[in-house]
Structure formats: structure tokens, C-alpha cells
Write a protein that binds this DNA or RNA. Structure first.
Length: 259
DNA sequence: ATGGTCGCGTAGCGA
């Protein structure tokens, strides 16, 4: 089963790029972030015609997550638990039923810049809520994953120029510690379980020719529970997508599970 | 130090 995560940076602007990639990669599931659309305006028919069930959790102009699946989805829930006053659409869950059931959590973690400040406080508070949800997920002892745009550069090797990110909310020590705290509960980060070394990125800024200089960062991640990690066969980044017409600033990352 | 580029929505914010 191929499961992908892709921050598409606006569904309206990305319909062609996204459908082209879906037809090529043929993922069973695509977790999408930054749809930047309300649910009613999401062009669901285009993806239903490609054979996907469409579940969205959108908001006007900003954020928004979605799940596309060729396999049946069950028990869809929207919103990260822990703060009923949080109106930002950054979390969606569903169970995909293949040969075995996998619990999927699609997330768009807050950027947090500028740091320090209220946006950074929101990021760290959101990560603490994520940690609590992660603990509950592990306690279920079933194959489950949390994937999406984490807005976290885990290690210096995950940036072409780590020194440029020293004071950034994506790389500050508190951000990386909060991410590590979740990982160390017992998750496997799929990409680093399969691939070592530098120069593997999932995001290149639109500005200053970042793509042409390969000035990227790796911020889109798959965290797998032990039961899910046992099924991991592959993890790859479709970086070539970034060089196409009208690309997102992120590219898809996908895993292949024996499920 | 500044500005560099996109998307949304049609000004200015978020990234």
C-alpha cells in the first residue's frame, strides 16, 4: 500500500500538478496539507473521477488538510484534540482498510515564525497536544502513522544551509526537542529508517532560486508506530516534481507498506 | 540589512 504526504499549497492552483502526479505515482492514499479552501469549494469530483474517496477538513484562505484514498476510509475525525477553542484546520484522521487496517493521521504543524512570539507559543502548544495524541495512538497497539508537514528540520543534515535556519522556528532547539520528545515515545521516522546522508529535501522556497541551487530543507515526515514500522518496505521523496510547471514549494513523500 | 516569490482573493497576510 502506497501512502503519500504532500503539502500542495492551495488546491485551486494545484489541480493539474496534483492530478498529473496522482496518475503517475498511483498512491492508494494521499494526505494533503494547505488545501487553503473551505470544504464546499474543494474540487472533489476531479479526484472521485480518479477513483479516490475524498475527506476534507478545510478553512477559508489558510491551512486545511485532506485525505484522498482509493481504499475505503472509516471513522474519519477532524481536529487535533486538546483545545476546543483552536479553529485552525490542521489535523484529520481516518482508518484505511486494505489487507489490514491502518490508522492515518494527516497533519499540518504550525510554522511558528517569528520566534519568539505568540505564533511560536502556538506551535509549541500544538506540539504538546500532538504528543498527547501520539501517546494515545501508541497505546492502541495497532498499525498507525502520523504524516504531513511537520515544519521541523530534525537535524543539520536535513538542510542545505543549517546555519541560515539557526533562529528559525523550524530549527530552534525547543522545536527540535519537542519533535524528538514525540519520536522517542517509540515512533519510527520512515525516511531515515531507509535512507541516510545529506541532500534529501522536501521543501524549496519559491524565492532566490532555491530549487536551482538545491537549497532545500526536509520538513515533511512519516512517524510510524512499531506495528506500522514492521510493515515498512520503502520511503521515497518525489523531488523531481519541484522542477515542473506551477509546482508547490513542497514535494510528495511516500511510503510503501506491506498492508 | 534587504528583498527576493507564491496563494488567496483582490489588500495584505502567511509562508
Amino acid at each position: 500500500m502506497i501512502i503519500a504526504t504532500f503539502n500542495i499549497n492551495g488546491i485551486k492552483a494545484r489541480v493539474n500538478a496534483l492530478t498529473d502526479w496522482l496518475k503517475e505515482r498511483q498512491p492508494d492514499v494521499a494526505l494533503l496539507q494547505e488545501i487553503k479552501s473551505v470544504d464546499e469549494a474543494f474540487p472533489r469530483e476531479i479526484f472521485e473521477d480518479l477513483g479516490y474517496q475524498v475527506e476534507t477538513h478545510g478553512q477559508k484562505s489558510f491551512n486545511g488538510v485532506a485525505i484522498l484514498s482509493k481504499l475505503p476510509l472509516e471513522d474519519v475525525t477532524r481536529g487535533l484534540p486538546g483545545d476546543d477553542s483552536d479553529e485552525q484546520a490542521r489535523w484529520i484522521e481516518a482508518t484505511v482498510v486494505g489487507r489490514q487496517a491502518i490508522r492515518l493521521c494527516g497533519l499540518y504543524l504550525p510554522n511558528g515564525n517569528p520566534a519568539p512570539g505568540p505564533k511560536y507559543d502556538y506551535k509549541l502548544a500544538w506540539m504538546e497536544r500532538l504528543r498527547r495524541r501520539a501517546e494515545a495512538l501508541l497505546a492502541e497497539e495497532m498499525p498507525a502513522l502520523m504524516a504531513g508537514d511537520y515544519n521541523i528540520i530534525p537535524q543539520p543534515e536535513d538542510a542545505k544551509r543549517p546555519e541560515a535556519w539557526e533562529d528559525d522556528a523550524l530549527f530552534r532547539p525547543e522545536s527540535r526537542a519537542a519533535y524528538r520528545r514525540i519520536l522517542n515515545l517509540g515512533f519510527t521516522e520512515a525516511f531515515r529508517a531507509r535512507v541516510q546522508g545529506p541532500d534529501h529535501y522536501s521543501f524549496w522556497d519559491y524565492q532566490a532560486g532555491a530549487w536551482n541551487r538545491n537549497d532545500g530543507i526536509r520538513i515533511d515526515h512519516f512517524l510510524l508506530t512499531p506495528q506500522c514500522a514492521d510493515l515498512l518496505q520503502d520511503c521515497r521523496i518525489d523531488s523531481e516534481i519541484r522542477g515542473r510547471e506551477k509546482p508547490s514549494d513542497h514535494v510528495p513523500v511516500w511510503i510503501d507498506l506491506a498492508a
